[in-house]
Structures are given as C-alpha cells and as structure tokens.
Design a protein around this nucleic acid. Structure first.
Lengths: 219, 219, 219, 219
DNA sequence: CATGAATGAGGGTTCATTCAT
DNA sequence: CATGAATGAACCCTCATTCAT
C-alpha cells in the first residue's frame, strides 16, 4: 500500500528507506519509532514519507509484509521440492537462521505484530503470513506419512502447527532479547550467544524434530 | 519495587489497582497505556500512582512479576509432585488455560515483554521468570527417563525447552489476536474460538506431547 | 463544554483565558488561531488548554456561546420591558454598539460561525443563538401592532427577520474590515470611522426603522 | 492577476480550473482549501497552479473578483434600465437567487471575504465590489423619489445601504449553513428549505421592501 | 498521604511552495 | 510549459511526571 510516488523513486533509495524503516521499527517498536528519525536516517524529509505512505500505520504494514515476503523467498526460493520432509525442515531452519542473520530486524518485527495494541495489524497480516507455511507443511507431512517416513499416528494439522511453532521459537530465541535469555536459561548457555552455539542449537532442534516424527524402527 | 506507601493501602484497593493496571497494559501495550486512564479506572489520583511507584516502568515491571507469580501459584500450587510427568504436563496446560481464562491479560503481558523496545524489561524479568519452570521440567524429565516412561534418547535440556515452548504457543494461541488467527489457520477452525475448541485443542496438544515423548512400546 | 478542571481554576485566570481566546479567534479566525499562541498569551501551558477543553473545536464552541451569552446580558439585562418597541430597538442598537466597543472581538466571532468550513459550528450554535432574539422581536412587534404603533400590514415574522438583519449589518459594519469598507462606500464616509460617525450612523439607522415601521399618520 | 500562462491555456481548461477553485474555496474556506486537492480536482498538476498564479492568496483574490464579475453580469446584464425601482429590485433578488442556484459557491465566497483573518482580502476587494451596486441603487432611489414612487423622507444613502443589506441577508439565508438556520428560526420553517419556500421568501421580502419604501397613498 | 492542575517536550500529520526533469 | 517529488515549518494534541495544597 505505498502510494504511486514511492514506486517511482530510484530503486536504491527505496531499498534504503525500507531497510531503515525496518531497523527502526525493530529497534524501537511501532509506538516508539519516530517518523522524524526515520526521515533523518533514510535521508529523506519528513514530508516525503507522507508522499510515500498514507500514515505510520500504513508504512508499518507494508514494512511487515515486505519483509515477510523477503523471508519467504529466502527460504522457499532455495528449496528443492523433491527433498524429503526432514531435509526440508532442516533447510527451513537453516535458511531462516541465515535470513535473520542478515536481517536481524525481521524477527523482531514479526513479534511486534503479536504485541498488545497491535490487533489492527494482526488482523491485516496474520492470515496472509501463516497460510503459505501452514499449507506447505501439511502437504509435506502427508507425503511423509504416505512414504512411511513420518509416524502415521500423528495429527497432521497439529503437527504442522507444532513444527512451525518450534521454528518461531527457534528464530525468536536467536533475536528477541527476552527469548534469548530464555534459551540461555533452558540450554544452560553461559555468556553471549555465538554463531557456534546458534549452529549447535539449530542442529539439536532439527534432530529433535527428526526423532519425534520418525516412526520407530521396525525389526 | 512498589514504594512503602503502596504496601500500606487497603488490600482491596491494592488488588483493584494491580488488576486495572494489568488489564490496561494488556489492552494497550506498555507504550499505549496512559497513566491518567489507569488512575481513572483504578479510582485513585494520578499523583497517588507516583506515591506508589517510581515510574511507569517501575509499575510495569511490578505488574509483570506480580502476575507471573500469580500464574506460578495457580499452576504449581495445585500440583501433586508425585504425579508422573504426563499428568503434570496435562495439569500445567489445563491450569494454565484456566488461569488465563480468569486473567486474560496475563498472556498479553507476557508477550509484551518480548516486544521490541522492551529490552529493559526482558533483562529484568526473563531469567527470574523462566528459571523456575526450566528447572522443574528438567527434573521431571530426568525422573521420567529414569522411570522408563520417557524416551531415553532425548536431550533433556532441549526437550524441556520445547515442552515449555509448546506451552507458550498454546497459551498465546488462546489469547493473542495474532496467534489466535495463526491457530485457526493451522487447525482449520472456522469462526470464533469457543471453549469447546479450546478444550479440544488442549487435549490434542497434550496427547501429542505424550506421543512424542513416550518410548516406543517394546515387544 | 469546558472540562471540570476549567471550572475549578481562579475566576481571574478563567476570564483572562476566555478573553485571550476570543481575541485570538477574532484576530486570526478559527483555522488561523494557534493553540500555542493562545497558551503564551493567556499565560498557561499548552497542555493546560487540553485540561480545560477537549479540543480546539470544543474551545471555539464555548468561546462563541460564552460571548453570545455575554452580549445577550449586556443588551437584554438592561432593557425595561415596558418600553415601546422603538425605544427597545434603539436600546438594542445602542447597547449592542457599546458591547462591541468593549468587546471588539465579539462580532468577528459571530461572523466566523457563518464562514465556509464552519458548518459544524453553525449547527451547534445557530438555533440557540437566534431563537432568543427572534422570539423577543416577534412578541414586541405583535404588541406594537396591537397598540397601533406599528403598521398592521407587516408580516411579523419577516419584519422581525429584517430588523434583526439590520442589527447584524449595523454591528458588522462597525467591526468587520470588509463591512466597514462597505459602509464607508454606501454612507460616503471619508477616512477612518470615528465614534461620532458611529453614533450618527446608529441614529440614522434607528430613525430609518422607525420611519419604516410606524403607521402613516392618520388625518 | 493570473500570470500570462493562465491566459494562454484552452478556454475550457481555464473555466474548469476556476470553477473547481471556487467550489473548493466555498466548501472548505480559504484556509481549509488544499492546493493539492485543487490540482487533482481541476486535472492539472500542482506545479501548474504556480505557473498560473503567484500564490494561493493571489488565486483566491482572482476567484473572488472573477465570480463577483460573473454575478454582476448575471444581474445587471439582464436588467432593463427603464424599469422602475421596484421592478429592478425584484429583478435583482430574482436573478441573484437564480445565480446562486447555479453557482452555490458564490455567496459562500462572498462571506469568506468578511471572515476574520481575511482583512487582506477585504481591503483588496470590498471597495471594488460594493461601489457598483451602491452607485446604482442610489441613482435609482433618487429617480424614484423624483418620480414620486419612493417616500421622499428617506435618506438615500442609508436606504441604499439597507436595501443592499437585505439583499445580502437574503442570499446568505439561501446558502450559508448558519444563515439558513437563522432564517428557518425567524420564518418558522420546519424541515429542509425547498425551492418553494425560497420563492415564497423572495416574494415576501420584495413585497416588504415595496411596502416600506412606497409613499403612503394620498387620498 | 491524596489530589489534580500544570507542564512542555515530543510525535504524527498537513500543506504551500519550489525546482529538477 | 507541465509535472510531481521534495521540502520543512507549523500545528494539534498526548502524556509521563511534578508539586502546591
């Protein structure tokens, strides 16, 4: 929902603007983000922002859905549909982690949408955001069961819900201050979270899902 | 961290005040909550709030930890330590659901703490909040493995992390606007979320955990 | 519709505030008046204005009706109901002229209400404002006809409308920049409008009404 | 005071532009009118407006005098100079009412000029606007007195002032929200103002003037 | 200790005008 | 000449906090 004006400005300027907006919203939250500061950071005038978007709300909505789309492409654009479900899940977690390594603001913005006072945004974005992954996971789980690589006694809808839930928790644990601390507490990590602990945590999580979904070996 | 003054006012007034504060923070978020409105709703003067607490921040911190303590009591105060881990997990989910049925604001406040711009609160509250449950789950998982009712090949720390993660997702799905929509999408629920769908969802989730953790039946 | 707060402040401060508000609205018009400037002029903080009134609109509405009430008292509070209609009309014009001599802003505010973009205010104030005078003039005209001092062939409603219309034109001609020029043009007044020309104009206008309403002398 | 550029654009475009400008100023008032909206409505670019006129103020001034000229033509262009004064007055009221039926924005713009904060415009336009009618009415009144159809005891200047004043009140009562309500109150009209009530009101007003000015019948 | 009036920095938004293309 | 993106000064209003009573 940017205005026409926004579509007509140079690509580089547009990227810069959206990037600064995402960083600002992620850093201060929706309410805390100051349009004046965004203008300064993005190198445009305050007035220009309102030539690009109707309102702060409109901008936030677009920044969210733009970043959601970016993340979707980063993950699903590089996935081979012939992989089995475990390879796919591993890929999702891996490329998700890589994506928020490059765009640390993404997860924070995602969590923003679920904060109180954000119901307006929830309504506008939740369905669109979740449907794609929901459909994909269910389809792959069904294929996995048919292929005998996933336990047949699992409820597909709930399992998809849970796998995606673990994905959200995983990413949250990498980025949100609160969930980082929570992860450190549970995983008994001392000190800062390093790329190594992240990689290890990723591996453990994926293995865990593997273990939980795979049918018991038959003699 | 309330001031002395707050401890000296009548119990009923104090309860009313904390309750209204929680409802307001949950309804509008930290930034959106207006101290003037709280004064009006709680039936005290604006000046009095600052006789009770140093600042809005201080109040929010206390409201969070107070409600966390409440929820802990609602859950762990009614739990029989002799129950096996599955009964305990069921109890946690059930009493958690019951607690936020009575205190719908609780979960929203919990999620508030993980929102961007809330790092100050994360740091102050996360460790305290999570340690208790983390320790408890790990202990019970260890006992479950020792007793042979939990798969021995699971990583205890990660499993505790995941079980509690599912608990957070479960409660979030009941209360946060965003996560409600997400649940509806995954579980393919049409229309509003009723007590029945909630109960059913709880049952399925607990069953699922059961299925995932229990060792395969040995021939 | 001031808030309670406004009613509780010292009388002198309240008077000063209302006076400065009237002057400002009269000087700059509704749209041109700046709440910040009002704060400075009235010696209160910007925030206080919003403790007194809901909004600029609300304030304007009150300033209008407050001044209308003041003018009503200045005119009708000093009128002897036993006077005949000509004496009453003379009194209305005289005390009206005196009132806007003391409150030059009044007439400008009155005309503000009829400006484009002010429909919201028109609806709120017009009926209340006009009814009182309308009723009074009609009653006196009826008495005048009954007493044989007013031509019986006049339509009472329209005559009341016209007499009051001439009153509005008269006062407008004293205060509004535009209508002052118009008066100078019609009355062929050179140079500034002095108290003497005002008095003379008043006298002529009242005489004119007299002449128009009085029945032709019967032989 | 349009720039040369404005005179060189196609007639139809110029008409459309002036018409939209008049409608916008009438609808929102000078301060409320937005040059961007005018550009959109008139189908020109914002930049073009400033190729046509120096400023918003300049444009407003021109729109006013242009419309004043239009109304003058509508009224005096169709008047037979041989008619007696009563027929002329009737014609002025009738064609005035017809003109603002077709150009409802005109009267509102006229009243705009007398609003507070508009002194700059008053000074520029008032004399020019009023002189023509003032001169005409005085001339006709003098002729009427000479011909014995107007009471000789009337002050010509004041009577011209009043007759034109009633004309302004009459038109205002048809168009301005505030004066419509005032008219309804005085004339005791229930519900909306229809063409019939307008016609009737016109007739009564003209008759009234007739009655007031005509010398008493001599035996 | 309670009250609620006062404060003023700050934030979102508007809009007349400019100017490079 | 036309265009429309850019500008930034204003402006209305909010709200956490203070403080005199």
């Amino acid at each position: 929902m940017p205005k026409e004006t926004f579509k007509n400005i140079p690509e580089a300027k547009r990227q810069k603007f959206l990037n600064e907006a995402a960083l600002l919203f992620a850093g201060k939250g929706y309410a805390g983000a100051d349009m004046g500061e965004l203008a300064r950071r993005a190198g445009v005038s305050k007035g220009s922002i309102y030539n690009y978007f109707e309102s702060k709300e409109d901008l936030f909505l677009y920044v969210c859905s733009f970043n959601l789309e970016l993340s979707r492409q980063a993950i699903y654009g590089t996935m081979d549909p012939d992989w089995d479900i475990y390879r796919q899940i591993e890929h999702i977690f891996e490329s998700g982690a890589r994506f928020i390594g490059d765009h640390p603001e993404f997860m924070v913005i995602y969590l923003s949408m679920s904060a109180p006072g954000m119901e307006q945004f929830s309504r506008a974005l939740a369905r669109e955001t979740e449907k794609f992954t929901s459909d994909h996971l269910k389809r792959e789980l069904a294929k996995g069961i048919a292929a005998g690589v996933v336990r047949a006694d699992l409820d597909i809808k709930l399992t998809a819900f849970i796998v995606n839930g673990l994905y959200i928790l995983f990413l949250s644990s990498l980025m949100s201050a609160y969930f980082q601390i929570r992860m450190s507490e549970y995983m008994e990590i001392e000190g800062a979270i390093t790329p190594e602990t992240t990689r290890e945590f990723l591996q453990k999580t994926v293995d865990h899902i593997h273990k939980l979904l795979r049918p018991p070996a038959v003699k």
